[in-house]
Amino acid sequence: MTQQRDYESIPGTYVYDSVRGRIGYHLNMFCMSLNKAENRAKFKADPEKYLDAFKLTAEQRRAVLARDWLGMLKVGGNIYYTIKIAFCDGLTFQDVAGMMSGVPKETYAEMMLAGGRSPRGNRYKDRPDI
């Protein structure tokens, strides 16, 4: 039986399931390599060369080099892995969350201080009224 992926009805959300896992494995394993300080140094020194050691698709490679955080999710990135690139750049989870949701850092921080993004209007892609 094929799994019913009812979570696909949630807007702006990329659940790391088997479909994304199969696409994103090598991208995420590249990110995993950044847990080692010496690899972080190598990646920072020559990102293109460092990426040559991993089997990334052209679009995955572009997204990494461009720091297209949302783009990485769309080609199988898992946020717990791609965030390691951000740590390399000295960014925080909140910096990246702001960029993914397409608002300036300050706007995102203000939203969080005001209680976060409301679930209302954000539950279903086709039901902005609830």
Binding site: T13, L73, I79, A97, S101, M111, M112, G116, N122
Partner: peptide
């Protein structure tokens, strides 16, 4: 929620 356009959701 840490990911996607919906990051920051709190309930």
């Amino acid at each position: 929620q840490l990911q996607g356009e919906r990051a920051g959701l709190i309930n």
